[in-house]
């Protein structure tokens, strides 16, 4: 009896310490590019979202190592967004399994990347959809996760894409929640192409 009471006291104290620690905490992002700390502008963008945004990320399944890294980083960043605003919900989908819907992905212009995979002297080509689709109040937007650049190695491309992730995601949330600014940006985009 006495022992049980002791254990319960200890447990209560420990839980209390943890609860207090939850309110007064400090966070040190030791990564070089501070990639796990949301920038203030990204926080501002998502702070006022009060309707759920659903994000489907199509990086799932059998991926080559560099895309696995992209997947892990995307997941960690989305968790960071989710922790800040629980209305941001995401799931990872494998577009190539039997439930996947490649047709509709292609229809909205999410083109697959052809990736050469070298393993044990064999080269094979793998199809990967480095895209995410965010939907908000019946509206949707495709988000490119891979930033294409000419003349760089695939590792550098992934590193650059990871550094670009926060901007790509925050920007698309902004466009979804403020449809007006979305129009403006598309006009700008066209202008630049001309």
């Amino acid at each position: 009896m006495h022992i049980k009471r002791q254990i319960i006291y200890v447990l209560i104290i420990i839980i209390l310490v943890n609860l207090v620690g939850n309110f007064f905490y400090k966070r040190f992002d030791l990564t070089q590019d501070k990639r796990y700390t949301l920038s203030n502008s990204a926080k501002e963008t998502i702070a006022n979202i009060d309707t759920p945004i659903f994000i489907d990320v199509f990086l799932e399944g059998d991926l080559p190592p560099e895309f696995k890294k992209l997947k892990v980083e995307t997941k960690q960043l989305l968790q960071e967004f989710e922790a800040f605003n629980p209305n941001i919900k995401f799931k990872f989908v494998d577009p190539l399994n039997e439930n996947g819907d490649i047709e509709s992905l292609l229809k909205i212009g999410a083109k697959p990347s052809q990736i050469e995979v070298k393993q044990n002297g064999k080269i094979s080509i793998q199809q990967i959809f480095p895209w995410a689709i965010a939907s908000f109040k019946g509206d949707y937007l495709k988000i490119p996760l891979l930033k294409n650049q000419l003349g760089i190695t695939s590792e550098e491309r992934i590193t650059n894409s990871i550094q670009n992730l926060e901007y790509a995601l925050a920007n698309s949330f902004n466009q979804l929640t403020h449809p007006k600014s979305r129009k403006d940006s598309s006009v700008k985009g066209k202008w630049r192409i001309r």
Binding site: I14, N18, N22, Y25, F28, D29, L30, Y36, T37
Partner: peptide, 29 residues
């Protein structure tokens, strides 16, 4: 992944302290 958060550190210290206290309770018994 490189983010040191005091909440996580407190968690690990509490798990350790809890089991060390259980150890001494168990030995005293």
């Amino acid at each position: 992944r490189g983010v040191v958060d005091t909440r996580d550190l407190i968690y690990f210290i509490s798990v350790s302290v809890f089991f060390l206290i259980l150890t001494s309770i168990n030995l005293r018994k």
